[in-house]
Design a binder for these strands. Structure first.
Lengths: 150, 150
DNA sequence: GTAACTGCAAAATATTTGCATCCTT
DNA sequence: AAGGATGCAAATATTTTGCAGTTAC
């Protein structure tokens, strides 16, 4: 059984074509990596995974392209690394809409998008016009909590 | 009239002494800068302001020291720059408690701590244990909204 | 065939470290 | 006087840019 199902392959190709991007090996692999795991990825994560196959510069450019076309988005982080996560379908070409929150595990350092948790509505002081609200929760994730119990 | 009131000078000295830090020119100037403005500052901001007087390395080390001692804290950002803001009194030596949210203006690119806005309580999916919640709002700040009206 | 994408080299930035000297306590 | 802080030089790390060769369409 192939590790990557044919349907996933098609999904990836479709995603790229939708954004009028040529379907290349590096783009497929990097997009695959995002789909294969639930969290967010930093440039470093990706480089570790595919760095022997593709050039570091290609990874930078691929990530930037994906952000520009609305396939992925950056996630604010408390430490100093920019992380990226897959966008939902509503996002496209430049503008993003993400109503979910992000969770960073302080133990395993993975970042998760919690789609179930809706961004709260905040009452801001007079004069401040909110356009986008990002919520970043730090703590212990599901896996690490369960592991600790055993 | 001196630009820096004697009382501020004393306040700065007190802050440093409280953390058992020697009172040096660079520390005073950098702390002064934080007190002089409402927002958050990046290393670059500070270097622009005092870079001719103090070495870039000194600024790095000073900021790190301030973070370690709980005088300032880092603010998560969507772009790629680490930014720092003054801590409240409850913070000390290593651990931080910040119940306020951060606001980044998409027009003037300043970051503000909105102390009046309390971090909302979130209901997370089963298994996730939150320890700290950071809220980052992007939009248009007070000043930029008012300027636009004129 | 052409435009877009990639790899390599190198430039530009950003951050960290070592060490001798100077300053604060 | 002693320990800590600073400045300078240099080592690392990170990100960007230019260009020639390659690939997708």
């Amino acid at each position: 059984m192939p590790r990557v199902a044919a349907s996933t392959e098609k999904k990836i190709t479709a995603l790229l074509k939708r954004q009028a991007l040529s379907v290349t090996e590096s783009r497929k692999r990097i997009l695959q990596y995002f789909l294969d795991q639930p969290g967010a990825l930093s440039h470093g994560d990706i480089e570790k995974k595919v760095g022997t196959t593709f050039d570091r510069v290609t990874i930078y450019r691929t990530l930037q392209t994906f952000v520009d076309r609305g396939l992925i988005h950056t996630i604010p982080s408390a430490d100093n690394a920019v992380r990226y996560a897959l966008c939902k379908d509503e996002c496209g070409d430049g503008h993003h809409r993400h109503e979910h929150i992000h969770f960073v595990c302080q133990q395993c350092h993975h970042t998760f998008c919690l789609d179930e948790v809706v961004t709260p509505v905040l009452k801001l002081p007079k004069g401040y016009s909110p356009r986008q609200v990002e919520v970043l929760v730090q703590g212990k994730c599901k896996d690490c909590t369960e592991t600790a119990k055993k």
